[in-house]
């Protein structure tokens, strides 16, 4: 068997917030590896720690303990190899769809023609052809989320971090987006770190699932999911695994 190489290593990360009236532990001693090219899902109940953890992994937030290694070197701040799809979309309301997708390329000073070409490719990929000149307020929730995904891809990251990207979508759109995301991923095999609170979504997408506990967030278990994709959500192994993870999940209050 090939030796698996780690793209990122998360080592004993903890995060405590201090306020005037005491402190709050959001994350405690979380460790896991992110393997090169894998689709890693972080599954956690409720509202505890997931976004904070992702922000630390992406270099937006500072941990109070532990280290994050990227290709073996400790991270300090953001890294241009890591791109992110935000839970709250965070599209620029004053930019058109095209300009939103171009954001990273614009910052890097890529010439306009090339910028357009790359962005168009990803807009086509997420099915937004024809909406290049629209503003975000003119789009539905699902379409906005696709802009966020295209924006992250257009930046050509080695690692794509996705924070509950489908959380705000209706069930139908959600399934469709999951399938499209898988197709895109199969094509270019980027490393993906995907956060969700939905067990089915985790099982449908993930090569491995890191299950977090309720506050403070700790790693409860890591489940490899050795099923071919696209997965049959009614297959026996799928359902057994679902039951196993489900019984091990803390109830969110």
């Amino acid at each position: 068997m090939d030796k698996v190489s780690n793209k990122m290593e998360i080592r004993q990360i903890s995060k405590t917030f201090f306020a005037s009236k005491g402190y709050f532990v959001a994350i405690e001693d979380v460790s896991f590896d992110v393997r090169d090219g894998e689709f890693l899902v972080i599954l956690g109940p409720g509202h505890c720690g997931k976004t904070v953890l992702l922000n630390i992994v992406a270099g937006l937030d500072k941990q109070t303990g532990g280290r994050v290694l990227y290709d073996g070197t400790p991270m300090d701040g953001v890294n241009n190899q890591i791109s992110m799809v935000f839970q709250k979309l965070a599209l620029m309301s004053f930019k058109t769809v095209m300009q939103n997708v171009e954001l990273g390329l614009t910052f890097r000073g890529t010439p306009k023609n090339e910028r357009r070409k790359i962005s168009q490719k990803y807009l086509d990929l997420v099915g937004l052809t024809g909406f290049e000149k629209s503003y975000p307020y003119q789009l539905s929730g699902g379409m906005k989320q696709r802009v966020g995904i295209a924006r992250a891809y257009a930046n050509d990251p080695k690692v794509l971090v996705m924070d509950e990207p489908f959380g705000q979508l209706d069930a139908q759109t959600r399934y469709a987006m999951q399938e499209e995301l898988l197709k895109t991923w199969e094509k270019d095999k980027r490393t993906v770190i995907f956060v969700t609170n939905n067990i089915e979504e985790a099982l449908y997408l993930g090569d491995r699932i890191v299950l977090l506990s309720e506050c403070p967030a700790k790693v409860k278990a890591i489940y490899p999911v050795d099923l071919p994709k696209p997965r049959d959500m009614t297959g026996k192994i799928f359902l057994d695994l679902r039951a196993e993870i489900s019984s091990n999940t803390d109830l969110a209050i």
């Binding site: 953001v78 965070a90 620029m92 954001l103 924006r151 930046n155």
Partner: peptide, 22 residues
Amino acid sequence: DKINIDVGKIFGGNRFQILAQI
């Protein structure tokens, strides 16, 4: 919103680019 600034950081904007373009 801080998240808009985070977007700027993630997509590689320097401080001036984030100020001027976001």
